[in-house]
Amino acid sequence: MDNCAIYYRRFLDGDECAFDDLMKELFQSLVFFVNGYVHNVHIAEDIAMDAFSDLIINKKRYNFKVTLKTYLFMIGKSRALDYIKRGKIIDFVDLSEAQNMKDDEEKLIETVLADERKIRVNDAMKKLPEDMRAAVHLVFFEEMTYEEAAKVMKKNRKQIDNLLFRAKKELRVILGGDGGLL
């Protein structure tokens, strides 16, 4: 059982503090992951909160067979895709609000990606297609196994392998001389 699952088990047994530990461990990275789909930190935050509330309401749905991180990321991804599907209307954002959002995004990146190397890779990833970006994110940033990443992305292991292979190739081109970061 992974750490997060242990926190969740403690929370289910009535330990409220365990939820704080769970949030510390997973919340920011979930927001960061969802932000990769919705490209809006506030909405990503909203979706992440929804995913966490799902975890509390449907206590029996999580069966402890996959890691809690994988489970939460699966919920986050499906919620993000739902949001994108529903909200295809062009949304105009205030200039000042857009500036705030950019600041928030930078803060989030600094929190989640502690080291310089990851930040540079993340910048380069913005030029990748969505699937590749998500696969790289899950495997390199969230340190998930290929199987876990495959579960979150609803693909098989081979497809993740291919996506990562092609992503690495493209990232090397994008990063140029910094290709050795990978």
């Binding site: 704080d20 909160m49 509390i56 309401i57 989030l108």
Partner: peptide, 20 residues
């Protein structure tokens, strides 16, 4: 961005709403 405590409070508020 909201702090973790704010987010936690919001999560529990949503949980209550959904339960209702």
């Amino acid at each position: 961005m909201r702090s973790l405590d704010e987010c936690k409070a919001e999560i529990f508020r949503r949980v209550e709403d959904r339960k209702k």
